[in-house]
Design a protein around this nucleic acid. Structure first.
Lengths: 214, 214
DNA sequence: TCTAGTACCTATCAGGTATTAGGTAATGTA
DNA sequence: TACATTACCTAATACCTGATAGGTACTAGA
């Protein structure tokens, strides 16, 4: 009997180095949350997707909540890196501020274009953003901070070019989030980029090309 | 012992007529889903909120999924009724079309104003709308149909006054949904109505007062 | 006052949940 | 080849999940 369990042990599972396994876990979780949301996600689902048992999975991520936060941070980093690349900014000499050739319309366009290529990830954030409106959701604080950061980031780009940059930032963010939901619900009927460009024309109508006082 | 269970039976619970109890259940569920989302909601929570046991609750609603749909339909009806009232439309002689004095800007303003007074309900729909992006969510079909209905409703109001009514409808809906999320996350920092009016000015800039050909 | 209907109960089920404890074997290094 | 590390396992814990079966007692109509 002892022999039996010994023979059954880890039947056919592959053993991976921690970093590689961790990446696989984050990827799988990203996909699964995008499909079902976080509350509906079970550690069993993730473990299955990775060819692990549940405790095997927990060995790498600690707990379900920490898994969620790891996924979010990972995606944020990745997105930021890609966006900077698309805008021609070198991350080596990143000073915490965008260079002057990066304008709000240009940054938005880049963001929307990138999002249009990765619906699963957009869904992940859309679902989680809404789910996390509940104060005791594990990602509640994260999304509150993220909204703050995004808003002031957008506002900074419009600084000096419009009377109320923060208000414009809110409008930009609202349109993006709202369009994405419609697009996810019915991807064939909605052209995310085209629709964005149509609104952008109206939102940015009064935007000055140069900062006031330059 | 039999005596004991008999004495414990329904200790102190109040018995209500079905219609009244059902309404109480719908109200409580609305509040709870707004707080936690549907996946995170348990029948136990609802039962507790109503002073019932879980089977007692199920007696009235059948199943968790049917409870959800009942809540959604109930809210939709209520909202429609209120909106019509605010726009001065008599539901008795409702023909399936809005009278000509109801314009898209006016309808939107009324909608936003009403939403601003009931954050819990707005949260209910925001959370559910995102959760239900998963195709196997019990409200998935409902929200797909609802999005369709809302879009064509908005588009109909703009018919003949703008080159692409459907596109305008999508923009309007996107802004509303997006602003609501920001507002729910941070109600004090966001003035829903004011922010809407600011965007509305831009979105409706080219809208003709009269339908083309009138 | 008897009776039919029904609102709601208790008990139980079959199955999921995340997490912990403690062990096993594959791996990289001395 | 010996050893330490660690990726991952099995087993068990202590829940909670929606749902059903079958009974109890309140209530409205005759």
């Amino acid at each position: 009997m002892a022999d039996d369990t010994a023979r059954r042990y880890r039947r056919g599972r592959t053993r991976l180095p921690a970093a590689q396994r961790r990446r696989q876990i984050l990827d799988a979780t990203t996909r699964l949350i995008g499909d079902r949301g976080f509350w509906a996600l079970s550690m069993q689902d993730v473990a299955d997707a990775c060819g692990l048992t549940v405790p095997g999975l927990l060995h790498h991520v600690g707990s379900k909540d920490r898994l969620l936060l790891a996924v979010l941070h990972h995606r944020d980093e990745e997105d930021f890196r890609s966006l900077a690349g698309q805008l021609g900014v070198d991350l080596e000499d990143w000073q915490g501020r965008w260079p002057s050739q990066v304008t709000l319309p240009r940054a938005c366009e880049a963001l929307v274009r990138r999002n249009a290529t990765q619906p699963e990830i957009v869904r992940l954030f859309s679902v989680l953003q809404a789910e996390s409106l509940a104060p005791d959701h594990p990602a509640s604080a994260y999304f509150a901070e993220r909204q703050q950061r995004a808003l002031s980031g957008f506002a900074a780009l419009a600084e000096g070019r419009t009377p109320d940059p923060l208000s414009l930032a809110r409008q930009v963010m609202a349109v993006m989030d709202g369009l994405q939901i419609q697009w996810l619900r019915d991807p064939d009927a909605t052209d995310l980029v085209a629709e964005w460009q149509a609104v952008a024309g109206k939102l940015f109508a009064g935007l000055r090309a140069e900062r006031a006082g330059e």
